[in-house]
Write a protein that binds this DNA or RNA. Structure first.
Lengths: 134, 134
DNA sequence: TTGAATGCAAAGCTTTTGCAATTCA
DNA sequence: TGAATTGCAAAAGCTTTGCATTCAA
């Protein structure tokens, strides 16, 4: 279901800030500042606070996902239909690429049966050099 | 090589704060506040700033490793000899357990050959319920 | 019209920086 | 002794909160 529809269906208002924030997230994960800056270049001024609040709402609605690359800022990306994936960050140019792996599920099952922990979620981030920078 | 020896060999001073900070890290990853608080219960008062600075030094010397569980605070743990591992965090009681997996290396190789990215490092954190809480 | 959403200012946290005082070697 | 290390105060950076104003429905 499209994010906007989802908002409407759940009784939330379709505001310009919300629509535009969602638009910025089309391509790759962004920080709050990056979202705000992107909007500024389109002459759409949205306060940082509102960006934070919108993202919090989107997160709770399952529209958006928070990712942490360990650099002190959270990043946000749209959740595409059940396409669980991870990220590769280039240490040189900073580009973020989506990564998905088939072995992953097996790995989680393995760990779960070995440890008897119930794994509800996990995050996997990779760092290195992208094809261009290598 | 023991951390203290390593410090001495590299010309750094063996101070009480440094020794005691290292001691707190024996068991599991701690935040800066947790380190400071642990020391306080032992009547050892070390300023937060000094904890930060010691950890930064230890990190650069390869004695300590920074981990990010996405809750806004960095955690620090001793690096044991080439025992690369990851973490499982219980969503209920907060316990952090070390996890290591054999499949992991294969997974990285797989991704590397598929994407042509050079993977230099990665982080994997798992969240769920531990045996006790499940 | 009216409650939801936004903007602005201020505060809350973690982490960093500057500098004088202290301390290890 | 003297440079390295620490502590204290202040600042920096990300995020949250309070409240009056604005706006979608």
């Amino acid at each position: 279901m499209k994010a906007i529809t989802q908002l409407k269906n759940q009784g939330f208002r379709i505001t310009l800030p919300r629509q535009e924030i969602l638009n910025t997230l089309e391509n790759y994960p962004l920080t709050v500042r990056e979202i705000s800056h992107t909007l500024k270049t389109k002459n759409i001024l949205v306060d940082l606070t509102s960006v934070y609040r919108s993202l919090e709402l989107f997160k709770q609605m399952g529209i958006v996902q928070e990712i942490d690359l360990g650099d002190g800022m959270k990043r946000y990306e749209l959740i595409r239909q059940d396409k669980h994936h991870h990220h590769f960050v280039c240490n040189n140019c900073g580009t973020i690429k989506d990564i998905s792996s088939k072995i992953e599920k097996k790995m989680m099952k393995d760990i779960q049966s070995k440890t008897k922990f119930l794994i509800q979620d996990h995050s996997l981030e990779m760092f290195g050099l992208c094809q261009k920078c290598n």
